[in-house]
Structure formats: C-alpha cells, structure tokens
Amino acid sequence: MFGFENITNQNGWAMAAVGASIVFMGLVALSFVISQIHKLLKLWDDRQKIIDRFKTKVPADADVTEAVDARVYEERHLPAVDELASIYQPLIDKLEEPFKLSQLFEIANKNDVPHPHLSIQRLQEAGLLVAQGDGTFTWNKQIED
C-alpha cells in the first residue's frame, strides 16, 4: 500500500502529530526549567536574608532606609556627614532615646532642615543612627566622637 492511504491506515498522521507535540513540549519544559535554575540558586544562596526578612518585623518608618545613590546627595547639595551630624545632634538631644525615625523626621521638618529624608538616610548609612531592631533608633556617640 502506498500514498496517503498508507499513512492513514498506519496511523501516520496521529504518530507525527503526537510525536512532534511531545518532543516540543518536552524541550519547552526543559528550557523553562533550565531558565529558572539560576534564579532558584540565587534564592537558595540568599535564603538567610529572606528568612531574616520574614523573621524581623520591618518597622513602618524604615522606608527611608532604601539605598540612595551617592550622586543624589551631591545633586541635592547635601552637606557632608560631619556637618549633618552637627545639625541633627541638637535635634536628637531633644528626643528621648531610643526614638523613632518618624519623630526625628517630624522635628527636622519643624526646624526647617532641608532634605530630612535624605539626611536621615545618610546618617543611617554613616552608622550614626543605629537601628535597635524594634523600629527605634539611637544616636551612635562612638562614631560621632
């Protein structure tokens, strides 16, 4: 038997369609899996950070702690850390330690200190404001000295 009749009789159309679909789906699945391997590995490598993130209650006013590019400080003409410390220390002296960043922000605003968000961020990065782990902060006198 020859021709299309033979293909039909031998179930050729179905074999070709099913076979092609299976190999395609198999390789698509494999390509998907291998495209995720490095992401899963990154998750695995960062597992401690992720666990810590869930374990530690993130303070509501910790938003200001996002990393800021150093260029932003320059663009906004923000003073150097020493100068900032000299501006903020009198304000912090008025607060009871430990204090919340929102309190510091509020008092800075009242005293018309420019860019309080960025300034507080910079003080944190410089280690002058130390997180206590419960959403409150203290002034690091050792660094200041």
């Binding site: 074999m15 390789l27 390509s31 291998i34 495209s35």
Partner: peptide, 19 residues
Amino acid sequence: PKLMLLGAAAQMGIYFTLL
C-alpha cells in the same frame, strides 16, 4: 534556554519524513 526551542523545531524533519 530559548535556543532549545530551535533544537525542538529541527526535529520536525523526523516527523515529516515519517509521513
């Protein structure tokens, strides 16, 4: 991994030849 799809596509020759 997207290049794997080309390896899958090239297998179509097998099924056309089967027919």
